[in-house]
Amino acid sequence: MRELVDFSTLMTIAIGAIFINNFVLSRFLGICPFVGVSKSVESSVGMGMAVIFVMTLAGVATYYVNKVLALSGIEFLQTLSFILVIAALVQFVEMFLQKFNPALYSALGIYLPLITTNCAVLGVSLLNIKEGYNIIEVIVFSLCAAVGFALALVIMAGIRERLEITDVPRSMEGAPIAFIVAGILSLAFMGFSGMKF
């Protein structure tokens, strides 16, 4: 039995989630918001914050849901129940925020419901279980995976804002050049693989 809080393990998980196995750039999860919401830095920060918020909550919630599933011996229903739980959770949090924290609600805005059934959110829940993390590790991993997602999104938005004013061949404008940039960005992040602690 491992200790509940082991800083070197947590550090490894954090660095691994943010850089080495970045959700967008090396696991290729959550590509649609990565391309869709990366047109301006402002909106990408909003999306990033919403993802951090939801992913951490969803990671914790699904950890306990999985306990229930494990008790009943029906772990094969993970995907189904996780989607159900995440969707309900996001809806609940949205209503809660609208009532008690309208400022945060309007800051997260449209992005909160957008990521309800995002594959990155489901991915983090499934990976938590697969890696057999304990609750502290689940929180750290979920948070850092989301931070990694937000990081990739903001970097991408910064590049795309520059691309807006550069002379791009007509046929490559918009999404095509964005995909090429995403590929190069992903190559750059591959440089982190092999990092050991």
Binding site: V65, V68, I74, L77, V85, A88, M95, F96, Q98, K99
Partner: peptide
């Protein structure tokens, strides 16, 4: 289990939409 989860989530949302209605 899954039906229970669904019911629970549904009930929670129904409750929230009344309680937290703006």
């Amino acid at each position: 289990v899954v039906g229970g989860l669904g019911l629970l989530a549904g009930g929670l949302l129904a409750f929230a939409s009344k309680k937290f209605a703006v």
